[in-house]
Design a protein around this nucleic acid. Structure first.
Lengths: 114, 114
DNA sequence: TGTATTTAGTTTATAATGCAAACTAGTTAA
DNA sequence: TTAACTAGTTTGCATTATAAACTAAATACA
């Protein structure tokens, strides 16, 4: 019907490239440390921190602070079921957009050939 | 190698949902009028205008101003070969990201089963 | 004729966001 | 005991998305 309005429905929390990389990494890892995640994604510490807190607010990730030998702070991050579900839905929506635009493209070329 | 850095390479001009919808519509239409495109995407006029001028600066679209019966202004928009190519490359990169994260996810589950 | 309204867009102002530099709190080294 | 490092958070800046306000021309109508 209105295929090009489907883009507006993309979950912006996941769509943002830095966060998509965080979420994808977490989906693969089940649990990761802050520094490991930072290395993996190539983000700066400040960036990681602010993106993570956005994801935490949405309940997409769970952040736990523990201490190594009760001294060195270590932040561990896990994806939540909510976050995992949101990621799946995000890719579904991407697929949907692709299908629907392909279809519309075909319809137009039938209506206005050449 | 560093799969989660691939997200940073997504073309941000196309990645933004409003512009993805504009570009997808144009790819299907070959040529469209401003108001038609606005209706299609559901964007406000101001939004349309500013997104279009960004796409124009990147040479992703060509904007032509003509007059209906030499009176009513009519803006027509076409995707350029550059824009069309960028859109194809965008989807390629999306595919690439998907493949690579899927793969990494498998590797991790092999390395740390259960 | 002149004033009001509509149309087709552009410009401007604002609010949100992404980003890295600067900061904090604790640890180890000299 | 002071300097330097570590692990992260906060702050400030620059960019961006968005809609409201504006512009310019056309039509409506009184």
């Amino acid at each position: 019907m209105m295929p090009f309005k489907e883009m507006a429905r993309l979950d912006k929390l996941i769509h943002e490239p830095a966060r998509l990389s965080i979420m994808s990494a977490l989906e693969a890892c089940s649990m990761a440390e802050f520094l490991f995640l930072q290395e993996l994604t190539g983000l700066t510490k400040g960036n990681m921190s602010s993106h993570l807190s956005k994801l935490e607010k949405a309940n997409y990730v769970l952040i736990g602070k523990s201490f190594l030998r009760k001294k060195i702070p270590q932040t561990t991050i896990q994806i939540t079921p909510t976050g995992s579900h949101a990621l799946v839905e995000y890719w579904k929506q991407i697929d949907h957009i692709r299908e629907i635009t392909k279809q519309w493209s075909q319809e137009t070329s039938i209506a206005f050939p050449g």
